[in-house]
Amino acid sequence: MSPSPSFFVIVALVDLVHAIPLDQKHQARQASIWNPLSPCASCFRSSWTQGPECTTNTILQSTISRVLNPPASETSTYTPTKWCTDYLRQTDWATSYATSSGVSTYTSWTITHLFVTVTDLDHPTSTMFCPIPSSGMECGWDSNTVAPIEQGEDWSIEHYYNPEECQQVCLEHKLCRAYRIDGNTQNGWSCEIFNVGLGRNASNVINPTASGSQWWDRNCLAHIPTACRQSTRTPPPISTTISDPAIVTDPTDPTATTSTPASARPTITTAPTAVPRGLSKRDAPLPPYMSDLSYFWSGMYLTPACSCLISSALPPAKSTSTRTVTSWTASTTVSTTYEDWFTVTTTPRETTVYSSIN
């Protein structure tokens, strides 16, 4: 909010003409302002004398010729000496201050978190198989030879499954009686399923070696899912349904409020020290035909050129500016509440675990 000023203190302006020492009011031009790279700002406050460079310096004479010889199209609105008198005119500037007092307003904001629960029903039901162990099953054999034709390999599956996945693929296929896994391939695990079982002592496997990790009958328990790990003495039921809901914390209080403190209270301010008054040459516009001299490096000879054509400029002009400094005498706080909504998604999942038939 913008406070209403209760009082103003105006800093009086000082006439800078009288602030310049008398011995600086009239200076020899050639000793003070001839250096075009560093022109003297206070040398044009009164009158001056022309220096010898006005007739001896080639570059300066060229600029003087530009100023004195405008094209015919410019003569109706442009007079060289009149323009130089305005171009070399000084500007005195000063800053005054107005001090106001008021009450500052601060906002204390609070965020309220709101939760809404959405149920995702698109997740598909997954199926897992629990094999029933049999007395004649053969588990854990190796072989350095695979004969797909004799052993009835089923080519309908992709080969890149880990051991747990490979057994589930075998159990999904009613004709599958054995599976083989190999973890030493370039692409990781390799899985193969066969419609011919291992036979007693792996008699259907070529060159079998006991206590291996490649060949398994479909009902072996080495790679069964965790949900199937029940007592092997009692076969698992024909079908079991287990619930596996997503774990979501459903807050009893639908809102949770978090407050953020307001900014620190300000200290009472006072009016700063006045900006020092300054002096600068006015930037009078160039005639259109000299617009190419608007840049410093191309027009830095304009100031000494004009000082060669006239001996005094227009009296300095005054320029003032006012700044307001606010002194806060008190403060007030306004509370604002924002709502921040969150969506919590629950995904109910049911995994049906079946028992396979040996």
Results as ranks from 00 to 15, higher is better:
Ser2Ala: 15
Phe7Asn: 02
Phe7His: 06
Val9Lys: 15
Asp15Met: 07
Leu16Met: 13
Val17Tyr: 15
Val17Arg: 14
His18Met: 05
Ala19Val: 14
Ile20Thr: 05
Gln24Gly: 03
Lys25Arg: 04
Lys25Leu: 03
Ala28Met: 11
Gln30Lys: 09
Ala31Phe: 02
Asn35Ala: 08
Asn35Met: 07
Ser42His: 04
Cys43Gln: 08
Phe44Lys: 05
Gln50Tyr: 12
Thr56Asp: 02
Thr63Phe: 02
Asn69Met: 09
Glu74Met: 10
Tyr78Asn: 02
Thr81Gly: 04
Lys82Trp: 01
Lys82Ile: 15
Asp86Trp: 07
Asp86His: 03
Gln90Lys: 00
Ala94Trp: 08
Ala98Ser: 12
Thr99Met: 06
Ser100Tyr: 11
Tyr106Arg: 09
Thr112Cys: 11
His113Tyr: 11
Leu114Asn: 06
Thr119Ser: 09
Leu121Glu: 11
Thr125Tyr: 07
Ser126Tyr: 05
Ile132Leu: 04
Met137Leu: 11
Asp142Ile: 01
Asp142Gln: 03
Ser143Cys: 00
Ser143Ile: 00
Val146Ala: 12
Glu150His: 07
Ser156Val: 10
Ser156Thr: 00
Glu158Asn: 08
Glu164Pro: 01
Gln168Trp: 00
Val169Arg: 04
Cys176His: 06
Cys176Lys: 00
Arg177Leu: 13
Arg177Trp: 12
Asp182Thr: 01
Asn187Leu: 15
Val196Ala: 08
Leu198Ile: 06
Arg200Met: 14
Ala202Pro: 05
Ala202Trp: 13
Ala202Arg: 11
Ala202His: 11
Asn204Glu: 02
Asn207Ile: 13
Ser213Tyr: 14
Ser213Pro: 07
Ser213Cys: 10
Arg218Glu: 00
Cys220Val: 01
Ile224His: 09
Arg229Phe: 04
Thr232Phe: 09
Arg233Ile: 14
Pro236Asp: 03
Pro237Thr: 01
Thr240His: 07
Thr240Lys: 09
Thr241Lys: 04
Pro245Ala: 06
Val248Ala: 01
Asp253Tyr: 08
Thr255Ile: 15
Ala256Met: 08
Pro261Phe: 09
Ser263Arg: 13
Arg265Ser: 13
Arg265Ile: 15
Thr267Ser: 10
Thr269Met: 11
Thr270Cys: 05
Thr270Glu: 04
Ala271Tyr: 09
Pro272Gln: 00
Val275Asn: 01
Lys281Pro: 05
Asp283Gln: 07
Asp283Pro: 06
Ala284Asn: 09
Pro285Val: 08
Leu286Gln: 06
Met290Gly: 04
Ser291His: 14
Leu293Met: 05
Ser294Pro: 05
Phe296Cys: 02
Met300Arg: 10
Ser312Ile: 15
Ser312Gly: 11
Thr320Phe: 15
Ser321Gly: 09
Ala330Lys: 02
Ser331Tyr: 15
Ser331Arg: 09
Ser331Cys: 12
Thr336Trp: 12
Tyr338Phe: 12
Tyr338Trp: 06
Trp341Ile: 14
Tyr354Lys: 04
